[in-house]
Nucleic acid binder design. Structure first.
Lengths: 238, 238
DNA sequence: TATTGTAATGTTGTCTGACAACATGATAGG
DNA sequence: CCTATCATGTTGTCAGACAACATTACAATA
């Protein structure tokens, strides 16, 4: 089959064409979050298609997370998630996956601590101390304690001043968070809690020194300790 | 507003319910890539809805990349991309973004080289040498030369034996590849090429020694050199 | 017997019209 | 001023029709 002939014959699917047109407007900024799309009736008239085609196009945009429809009102452009990286979460994470992702997390978190030592702001140090207090003060080690812990790490990633550290470490945290919840619910020994709190405090203090080497070492110690506490043997060379 | 009342009142959007049902079947494996979905007519009868609702559900699934429709034939489940991590590429990458992503890439690639030194297979070493030959032999430094270069790094990531290294480094490579193409098109000095080839050869040879520390150091040297060659000053502590 | 052409049937793509359900704004009544 | 009702507009769903494409079966011809 001559591919030139096939190209001539193929007519683009109408809903996809219209969905692409609006996606383009959203991505290039001429349609902003909160903006209302034209009514279905108006779009059908403007593009010279049936309302069915318009509705299927909106179904596509909805599925892509770009718009939401409100019955009786219209379709509105959604805020695009600040998140620029997405980790597939369709499959439940088994122990091997967790170990693999944890292994990848280690060099990232260590580098983030070093960069945060150099680049943090006063506000970020305050936020880090607040997260540390939430870790220390929690009465729900496996619930809000995990949230505070992951917040602590996210704040460090943000303090690198490099958005990708924030994005990647945030994505990884989201993916492993429920595994950590389960691990903490199953074992709440007091010395485990005490070590975890001490290690986080040491990281916070190390970052405050502004010395990247010290900060990196404190994070390394915590990640090793943390892995051992959940029975993980992780090979790494950082 | 009492949230219990709101829960009772809210009826889920029909196309979304049907799309979710099929997405579930696809994710849990009862529908496999290549399988044909029931006809629209049959689905409408089975679910007791109009064909419009079914079509909007299929539009959603199509938009999620889970199915493709063939006119006159039916809708078929698509292969799910092996990729489990997605980097948003809606926005063009500027120099600052490139530097930030490169900064994050450094600890990952160094750790990957170390792990690859320990875990590589004979086939992976052969593939790495083949990619190295493609780098060395290319007459199109900015085209197939870049492809070979990124393949080289992907093979190393795969040789870690940890799928997340492959996924993350692959995602990053896809995102920065066209920037590298442009950089190489703009400057093709012979000593730049010679250094790049020598550094890749050193990495290949270091991984072959099975010594993670040596491999890590070779990758570090390359990443520093590579950054300098494109005029990037990157702060890192690995 | 093998190949080609045609007809029948089935399926997706699009259109039209109608009504249900929801939302908003204006107006009237207390 | 507040509440209820009505009118109008918009999305959600249904039903029917026809276009466009795909597949299969059967007949005609070499």
């Amino acid at each position: 089959m001559d591919s030139g002939l096939e190209q001539i014959k193929r007519v683009a699917h109408l809903p996809t064409r219209i969905a692409s047109e609006f996606a383009k407007r959203i991505y290039e900024g001429s349609l902003q979050p909160g903006d209302k799309l034209p009514t279905e009736h108006m779009m059908a008239k403007t593009f010279g298609v049936s309302r069915t085609v318009v509705r299927e196009a909106i179904a596509q945009l909805r599925s892509e997370g770009l718009v939401e429809s409100r019955q009786g009102v219209g379709a509105f452009v959604l805020e695009r998630p600040a998140r620029q990286i997405y980790l597939d979460d369709a499959k439940a994470m088994d122990r091997h996956d967790f170990r693999s992702l944890y292994q990848l997390r280690i060099p990232l978190e260590m580098e983030a601590a070093a960069l945060a030592a150099v680049h943090h702001t006063t506000a970020q140090m305050d936020a880090l101390s607040a997260a540390l207090s939430r870790i220390t003060d929690t009465e729900n080690w496996g619930g809000s304690g995990v949230e505070a812990d992951l917040d602590f790490h996210r704040i460090i990633a943000e303090a690198t001043g490099n958005i990708y550290f924030g994005q990647f470490i945030g994505a990884i945290s989201d993916r492993i968070s429920h595994v950590i919840v389960i691990a903490r619910t199953e074992g709440q020994l007091e010395d485990v809690i005490a070590h975890t709190i001490e290690e986080h405090t040491a990281i916070r203090d190390a970052i405050r020194t502004k010395d990247p080497v010290v900060a990196r070492a404190a994070m390394r110690r915590h990640l090793i300790g943390s892995a051992q506490r959940v029975g993980l043997s992780i090979e790494f060379y950082s």
